[in-house]
């Protein structure tokens, strides 16, 4: 288990669980951040936060605080 917020740039993982306050969680779900989705850490903003990830084929930006709600596991090769 690794939180999305702890990813380093270029790392990939599969989402296992999404937690957090209902509003944030719902928003994450609506944007396709759901269990089973593959997520790739693209980059960090110049000041280190927010981060940009590739998910379901598009670019999504979210803060570290929100990325903390996302648990992931490694992809089995």
């Amino acid at each position: 288990m690794k939180k999305l917020s702890d990813f380093s740039i270029g790392e990939t993982g599969v989402i296992v669980k999404v937690d957090g306050e209902p509003r944030i969680k719902r928003r994450l779900f609506d944007m396709g951040v759901t269990p089973g989705a593959e997520v790739y850490m693209r980059k960090k903003a110049p000041l280190g936060d927010p981060i940009e990830v590739t998910i379901r084929g598009y670019e999504l930006t979210l803060r570290k605080a929100e990325a903390e709600c996302v648990d992931t596991k490694e992809i089995k090769a």
Partner: peptide, 9 residues
């Protein structure tokens, strides 16, 4: 408020 936004190409 949270910041969860699409970055278009």
């Amino acid at each position: 408020s949270p910041f969860i936004m699409e970055l278009p190409a």
